[in-house]
Design a protein around this nucleic acid. Sequence first.
DNA 1: CTTGACCTTCCAGTTACTGGAAACCCTACA
DNA 2: TGTAGGGTTTCCAGTAACTGGAAGGTCAAG
Lengths: 134, 134
Amino acid sequence: MKIADVAEASGLSAKTIRYYEDIGLVRPARGTNGYRAFVETDVHKLRFLARARSLGFSIEECRTLLSLYEDRARASADVKALAEAHLRRIDRKIAELEGLRGTLATLVARCHGDERPDCPILDDLAGPSAGDAQ
Amino acid sequence: MKIADVAEASGLSAKTIRYYEDIGLVRPARGTNGYRAFVETDVHKLRFLARARSLGFSIEECRTLLSLYEDRARASADVKALAEAHLRRIDRKIAELEGLRGTLATLVARCHGDERPDCPILDDLAGPSAGDAQ
DNA sequence: CTTGACCTTCCAGTTACTGGAAACCCTACA
DNA sequence: TGTAGGGTTTCCAGTAACTGGAAGGTCAAG
């Protein structure tokens, strides 16, 4: 199998697959012409990686997941711990974004958004205007 | 004012402030010794930038916001449009993360997380196991 | 034997910084 | 006067995970 076929089969781009080889996630064999020659297990690994990445795991986490996947003596607790850590990270990120969303939505709602320069959004960004107290 | 004072006053690190000068967001004067000599408006700008960044605006958006802030003939509609675009981006990101969160939470819940190798999380990552149909 | 579609490697760029090295400056203290 | 310490300067490299592009090799068809 050549790289374009594998790209098609895995949903990753050829560029990404080469990159994954670069960083040691896969090690496809090479044909006499120097082309990468992928076998089924390579494709399977790449699909695994694509799925793990799509769930937001980092490359290093994917590396660990892959090694756990290939370790028949693994403990599912190790996998679960990784996934839980990732879940907590996602929760923190969501909370952070919802905070931003709240502030931003308030500012947007307050801004009339017309031709006039007067703008609560910029006022907020500029911070407390000390001069106003006067 | 020297850079450490400005860092203190703006909440940005000295490194970040130098970086912002590099990319043209601020242009502090220089003393005879080559040190950056910040004035109040520089500090104000940097605080503006720190606030905008903390709301998740990109550097390029911050640049635009800053130029709008300094443009006394601006239309608030322009600011609002920028903020609304950012808001939509945040909403999309939240939705994406909540999707991930749902999938991941399900998988984590299904995994017993003990010493045994059996793991629904890895099974999911490995994709539909064609062999199971038997 | 040429054309076009693949494939290869390698280098640069992306975002928004951060760390670190080497060197310069300033102040205080002995 | 010398020096120790803290600040400051510049510049280079690295981060995460690719992506784009250039230059060149390979292959199948006509």
